[in-house]
Design a protein around this nucleic acid. Structure first.
Length: 1031
RNA sequence: GGGCGAUUAGCUCAGCUGGUUAGAGCGCGUCUCUGAUAAGGACGAGGUCCCUGGUUCGAGUCCAGGAUCGCCCA
């Protein structure tokens, strides 16, 4: 039902958070979200994938950021006619969840968990992971993120796990799933390896001890290799030294001793002017035997404790002699393989030394660093120790420094499909564009195999069963397959139940490999696993693959963006998303990273309670390009309320106030006589609509939102300001125009600020239960008038110039002036003429006089228009500029304004220049009140005769009476009896302009015999007494 | 050490394919309007567009090098 006046009165000091709560209630009552989807049944889908958050912590500002950007384009596409399903999802597995439970139970290690019982531990995890799901859902609703939370997917569901198993089987069948022995980043606290994208999340600046260590050359007393390391604990298992074959090494004399190191680094390490001798190539050092720093482990084979050659050695830092511990570095490990070194790993899974490490046995490796240095010092092997600041990877969840550690793990051989990954990325549209071939593309190019397995408890079990002798390996793709193999399939596919599942295969007993898989693989399976595809809902999956749009923060480049791309490329040969929007970090108002420890975290609820969801959304959408990151604060959001929402609300409130006062109906635009300024406002609406569609289609809320804000600004500060009288008088054209524009704005901005726009729409129209069930506006070419927009901008400039001129002579606008003189030729004169009344009113002048030439006001200066002449004359531009400068300016100006051409001679040739080729600037003459801008200028006749003065006084009186009305608490529509007294000159002026006074102040009568009581005012130093009484 | 991004007014940000007076909002100062009134308008102060070179008739914009900050990776 379309609403007609009287409208609901608008509270102009409306608190928006309260308004939003009302709107939320309305949405619930009317089931608007689901209705908006039902209405698009059968329409072309726009597919959105929800990147599942983990609900075991409270949602923060950065979560709100991605959630509103997920929302805005879903809403926009829905209004544009697409069917947009929005299935929620929750990431349930993995270390973060285990950690929370461990913390709660006071556990320190995996043994604690084993002792406690895996079944009970996982039950706790299941409970813990959704601990904050209610708050998440509440926040999701409060910020206006329309998401189907009732029908969300959970990665812990058996159906989800089964789909993940299926995906692994596909990979297994392609021969891409393998067990490998490699050095991996390993968290000793969590007791598990991490994938490279997990490692990527945890780099931190730290200060580690670094040590320069002597490795005594066997058989040469007093001669040592000088090695350098930032991980002293690995010296316990030193197996060899590595030098670069092509680097020059020298012997440096330091006191009594001789140190061998790279020539290029000798001075930096040992000090300037160090004596060196005997330069040799690294290649010549191969095989040199030396004394290991610690004697505990000796058996590294034939090449143990000798110098080896390696290309990875650099002379960027250290000494050019690299200490090699086979088990603790990727390069070291490969070098060890090449030389056949025995792998000796004296470090246990919990990060402590085993009994092979002599006195350090049982110590955590990092903690042992200082004692190890001390032992070296005592043994005379430490040359120097110092602090070294560098960034080092830490466990992304428990913050323990990682160690690189040789162990076996299951991998997905993504490197074999690298070309396909790159090709899949080519098809993706990234916002911002540079991520595609920058951060993400470079990462793909350096792709390494995906370390898939985790030796943990709460996660998707690796579905691989193996015979005890390792001969037979089966990857299981489903419950059904497991049953077919003769196993008892447990209800719950998690550990520990799945660990008990065994079956016979080729006469051998098959037991499950106890590992879990990386949770990122879980999330990468979401396109099909959310539907339990391919086991069911196959057609749904087909329809909703790939996603048109996904959106997450930049830190997901190596997280979800990668897992989605990799899984679907391996399975389907393409990316599972077509467009991705990357959002930046949220910093505090000072540009510092928000962190609990700093106490500078802005809690979303605070912002919502203070300014509301629209304000927060508007801030995120329009304050800047979202990928650059935000300097976020309550104040910053407050500013966005004032600038946009408050302005919109005031304009809307103004219209409702006078629509109700005047009892005007809602006439259609076709039924009223539009004025030029109406046509201008409507044209601006079309222009804005065009921009909004063009920008939102390109996932750009920033420019779209700013364009809408500019329209609102124009409506408020120009259209309404210039049309006030028509609203007071109830002019139907004005109301029809403003209503049309406000409804247009409501629809244009509905996806961005869904609450306030729905309130406005509901009151001014209400034909639909909600603005969100409307179609997005289309620009109407019939209402667009570009010429009119140009003309209006010219008039506004002229008004600005005139007001500036007034300001300079300090003449109040209230004081009428005789004449404004406007310099304008041809088209410009026509433009201003069209809105002359407006100019007269704004400047409060009696008449406008146009002059084409500037003789009265100043002199023209001519300048070449570089933009048009530059391409034409190129390097001859200096001559052109000189020639133009030499023209008779006034004559040329006259010619050009009449559409003629002027001629200049350049390089002996004659060239014709038109109006577009020459810019005319006005230089004002001394002694005139002239304001100029380019070729435009406005001057004021500032002589004030008595007539004008009396008129000015009358206006002052009106002003004073209005104040008195307000003080008396009268309503804007109240009629009054007015009585005035005071200075005779003032009263004379009033008498002369009595009708004007009556009209302006809504007085039905005026008594000039003097007010006994009432307000006292002063007009140009003369007394005025005002009595006001309501009729 | 490498990759990517950023650097424009006191603050937060615009500035399209290079075009000669670099813009907006906030804040500040001075006025002003008032039938939207704890809003609105005008004017003003405030910029070596990070630095150095280069290309060009012309560079905030393009190129190279450097500085600083951020993120990512070794």
């Amino acid at each position: 039902m379309r609403r007609v006046p009287p409208y609901e009165p608008v509270d102009r000091s409306q608190a928006f958070p309260a308004l939003e709560v009302e709107i939320l209630e309305r949405w619930r009552e009317r089931d608007v979200f689901h209705e908006s989807i039902r209405r698009r049944e059968g329409a072309e889908p726009f597919v959105f994938y929800e990147g599942p958050p983990t609900a075991n912590g409270r949602p923060g500002s950065h979560h709100v950021l991605s959630r509103v950007f997920k929302d805005v384009f879903s809403r926009y596409r829905t209004m544009r006619g697409r069917l947009v399903h929005r299935k929620g999802g929750w990431d349930c597995h993995g270390l973060p969840v285990e950690l929370e439970v461990e913390k709660k139970l006071g556990f320190q290690s995996k043994e604690d968990i084993e002792r406690y019982g895996v079944a009970e531990f996982n039950a706790q995890c299941r409970e813990s992971v959704l601990r904050y799901i209610d708050e998440w859902n509440e926040l999701t609703e409060r910020i206006g993120f329309w998401l189907d939370t009732d029908d969300a997917y959970y990665t812990l569901d058996d159906s989800y796990i089964e789909s993940v198993w299926w995906s692994l089987k596909q990979v297994f069948d392609q021969g891409l799933l393998y067990e490998g022995h490699k050095v991996v980043p390993y968290c000793p606290r969590c007791g598990t390896a991490l994938s490279s994208h997990e490692v990527a999340q945890g780099y931190k600046e730290v200060v580690d001890p670094s040590a320069y260590v002597r490795f005594g050359v066997r058989g040469e007393e007093g001669v040592s290799f000088l090695g350098w390391t930032t991980t002293p604990w690995t010296l316990v298992s030193n197996a060899a030294l590595a030098v670069h074959p092509d680097v020059t090494y020298v012997r440096a004399q330091v006191g009594e001793e001789t140190l061998i190191l790279a020539e290029a680094l000798a001075e930096r390490v040992l000090g300037e002017g160090i004596e060196t001798s005997d330069p040799v190539k690294g290649a010549d050092l191969e095989g040199t035997a030396y004394e290991p720093p610690f004697p505990y482990i000796a058996d590294y084979g034939e090449h143990g404790h000798t110098v080896l050659l390696a290309d990875f050695v650099t002379t960027d830092d250290g000494t050019g002699v690299v200490h090699t511990a086979v088990a603790f570095g990727e390069d070291d490990f490969r070098l060890g393989e090449a030389y056949g070194l025995e792998v000796q790993n004296p470090v246990l899974g919990d990060g402590t030394f085993d009994e092979r490490a002599g006195p350090f046995a049982g110590r955590g490796v990092k903690e042992a660093d200082p004692d190890i240095l001390e032992a070296l010092r005592d043994a005379g092997r430490l040359y120097r120790a110092e602090d070294y600041e560098h960034s080092y990877p830490h466990c992304w969840r428990c913050e323990t420094p990682l160690i690189y550690y040789a162990k076996s793990s299951w991998y997905v051989r993504t490197t074999e499909r690298k070309e396909e990954l790159l090709a899949a990325n080519e098809a993706v549209e990234w916002h911002p564009g540079h991520i595609k071939h920058g951060r993400f593309g470079k990462w793909l190019e350096n792709n390494v195999d995906w370390a898939l397995s985790r030796e943990r408890y709460w996660g998707t079990p690796l579905p691989i069963w193996r015979s005890d002798d390792g001969e037979e390996v089966v990857c299981v793709s489903s419950r059904a397959e497991l049953a077919e193999l003769g196993a008892d399939v447990p209800e719950d596919l998690h550990r520990p139940f799945v660990d008990d599942v065994t079956f016979e295969h080729n006469g051998k007993t098959m037991r499950r490999v106890p590992d879990l898989i990386d949770v990122w693989w879980d999330s990468g399976c979401m396109p099909f696993a959310q539907w339990h595809a391919p086991f069911e809902n196959g057609e749904k999956f087909e329809q909703r693959f790939p996603a048109d749009y996904i959106c997450e923060a930049l830190d997901q480049t190596r997280g979800w963006f990668y897992s989605l791309l990799a899984v679907s490329t391996l399975l389907y040969g393409r990316a599972s998303f077509e467009t991705v929007l990357c959002l930046g970090l949220i910093l505090d108002g000072e540009g510092q990273k928000m962190s609990k420890s700093k106490g500078n975290v802005v809690v979303p609820w605070d912002v919502l309670d203070t300014h509301g969801a629209d304000a927060l959304r508007w801030y995120y959408f329009t304050s800047k390009q979202p990928w650059d990151g935000y300097r976020f604060s309550l104040e910053a959001v407050g500013e966005s309320v004032r600038q946009f929402i408050k302005t919109l609300w005031n304009t809307y409130g103004f219209m409702v106030l006078y629509a109700n006062v005047n009892d005007v109906g809602t006439a259609a635009l076709e039924e009223v006589d539009l004025t030029d300024i109406d046509r201008w406002a409507l044209s601006r609406l079309q222009e804005t609509t065009e921009i909004a569609i063009e920008r939102l289609d390109d996932y750009d809320t920033t420019v779209a939102g700013r364009a809408i804000a500019a329209l609102v600004e124009d409506l408020s500060n120009w259209y309404v300001r210039r049309s006030r009288r028509r609203f007071w008088d109830g002019d139907p054209a004005a109301f029809a125009t403003l209503r049309e524009c406000l409804l247009g704005v409501a629809k244009l901005a509905a996806p961005l600020t869904p609450f306030v726009t729905d309130a406005i729409y509901g009151n001014l129209d209400g034909a639909e239960p909600s603005v969100h069930l409307c179609d997005y506006p289309e620009p109407d070419p019939a209402l667009r008038d570009v010429g009119l927009e140009w003309q209006m901008s010219l008039v506004r400039e002229a008004v600005g110039l005139g007001l500036a001129a007034r300001a300079h002579v300090k003449l109040k606008v209230r004081q009428p002036l005789r004449e404004a003189i406007v310099v304008a030729g041809g088209r410009e004169r026509e433009a201003i003429g069209r809105f002359e009344g407006l100019l007269l009113e704004e400047l409060n002048v009696k008449s406008v006089r146009y002059v084409s030439e500037a003789d009265e006001l100043g002199r023209f200066e001519l300048k070449p228009n570089y933009r048009s002449l530059g391409p034409r004359f190129g390097s001859q531009m200096p001559q052109v500029a000189a020639a133009v400068g030499g023209l008779d300016a006034d004559a040329a100006a006259r010619t050009l304004r009449d559409g003629g051409e002027v001629h200049v001679a350049i390089g002996g040739h004659d060239h014709a220049l038109g109006a577009d080729d020459i810019q005319m600037a006005l230089r004002p003459l001394e002694g005139y009140e002239v304001e100029r801008s380019g070729s435009h200028a406005v001057a004021l006749d500032v002589t004030i005769d008595d007539t004008l003065r009396r008129e000015g006084v009358a206006r002052e009186v009106v002003h004073a009476v209005q104040n008195a009305r307000k003080q008396a608490g009268l309503d804007v529509a109240d009629r009054i009896d007015l009585s005035l007294g005071g200075d005779a000159a003032v009263l004379a002026a009033v008498r002369e302009h009595e009708d004007y006074l009556l009209g302006e102040t809504l007085a039905v009568s005026v008594d000039l015999s003097g007010a006994e009581t009432g307000a006292r005012a002063e007009i140009e130093g003369l007394e005025l007494l005002i009595g006001v009484s309501r009729v």
